[in-house]
Design a protein around this nucleic acid. Structure first.
Length: 353
DNA sequence: GAACCGTGGCC
DNA sequence: TGGCCAAGGTT
């Protein structure tokens, strides 16, 4: 007969080791009945999708300083939100963030739903985020399963089924462990355990609050779990971008379509991106284009990209065929997604401005 | 189910 | 350097 992991042991560990975060109410305050602002919990959870705490912190602080409430965010301009999100990646999150804020502001009187099923209906909120917001912001007894929880469950119960096939099995195991008392703290505790102790590489099993019941540790298999099905190799695509600077300093940019890669973000006009060679295309404005000696390289989720960067200085009276000139006070380089920022930095370094 | 969708840190 | 990895959701 094996000893079962106890939620109480994990909560006791969490009370001593919970990490402070800008969107978090500490365990002491929570036990005194204080719950966090649902808007801040929701915003942080959207930002944290596939993204590390370190990368999120500054973005969260800038967003909440600029838009302190869901009503403020709902009233924001699309371009301002996309610009503030630039660099964080997965830009569909930002578009859905705005959709969701406006829906909550208009149809829910500015109040986020407290129940899992109602949260799940909102754009950008899937099973994980619905569970996290209901548990953390409203102390609902939801089961929260993210990559950390999957890893912890696979190790504690020594599950060798590869992901994503193992997902339902791991979700079931996680649900059986979820306590009715302090479910919000428990949800954060399991994720903190995965983030700090039960890490993908070199887990600190010796100081783990669940080291005794952990079957993966007992069997010596913890480090190799969870198993995952092999990923496909990434192809390399090629393309060209055009960075035109007008003599008054204005820059030629275009707003990308709302759907697809970098949807809704600013970018440089240019060719499509394809495997093998740069596809046929034409320049967005007539000019004497110079090719930079260094290409911009970037890797997305499912392909590598190598961009040829062309630059030109154009006179005031020449109209672009594609895009529009943004003046110096209309354009911040930080509004660009990273691949476009890389091309911009290469062009700036070359021309010295 | 599988494909699509970013980025920065780590080893 | 290049693959892996992170508090996933949508189509």
């Amino acid at each position: 007969m094996c000893e079962q992991p106890k939620a109480a042991d994990l909560l006791e560990w969490y009370d001593r080791h919970a990490r402070a975060m800008p969107w978090r109410v500490g365990p002491a305050d929570r036990q005194a009945g204080v719950l966090p602002d649902p808007y801040r919990v929701w915003l942080s959870e959207i930002m944290l999708q596939q993204t590390t705490v370190a990368a999120v912190k500054d973005y969260f602080l800038r967003f909440t300083a600029r838009w302190p409430t869901v009503q403020d965010l709902a009233a924001a301009k699309d371009a301002d939100v996309m610009g503030e999100w630039a660099g964080l990646g997965y830009y569909a999150r930002a578009r859905n963030l705005l959709k969701c804020a406006r829906l909550v502001a208009q149809d829910h009187q500015g109040q986020f739903p407290r129940h899992y099923d109602d949260l799940l209906k909102l754009p950008g909120i899937g099973p994980y985020t619905a569970g996290a917001v209901s548990a953390i912001a409203f102390d609902q007894p939801s089961t929260v399963v993210d990559g950390n929880v999957e890893r912890v469950m696979a190790r504690v119960y020594d599950v060798h089924t590869p992901l994503p096939v193992a997902k339902p099995e791991l979700t079931q195991l996680a649900a059986e462990l979820t306590p009715s008392k302090r479910p919000g703290d428990y949800a954060q505790a399991v994720m903190d355990l995965g983030a700090t102790i039960c890490t993908p590489k070199n887990p600190a099993c010796g100081i783990c609050p669940w080291r005794t019941p952990c079957q993966g540790r007992a069997n010596g298999t913890a480090t190799e779990l969870p198993k995952k099905t092999p990923k496909k190799p990434k192809p390399t695509r090629f393309g060209t971008v055009y960075i035109a600077r007008r003599v008054d300093g204005a820059i030629l940019l275009e707003r990308r379509p709302d759907s697809g890669l970098l949807g809704g973000m600013l970018g440089w006009p240019g060719s499509d991106w394809q495997e093998g060679s740069v596809p046929d295309h034409s320049a967005p404005i007539r000019a004497e284009w110079k090719i930079l000696p260094t290409e911009a390289r970037h890797t997305f989720t499912h392909f590598h990209l190598r961009l040829t960067v062309k630059t030109a200085l154009v006179p005031m009276d020449r109209a672009p065929k594609v895009g529009a000139f943004l003046t110096l006070d209309e354009f911040r380089p930080s509004d660009l997604p990273t691949v476009m920022r890389k091309a911009f930095d290469l062009a700036s370094a070359k021309s010295g401005n």
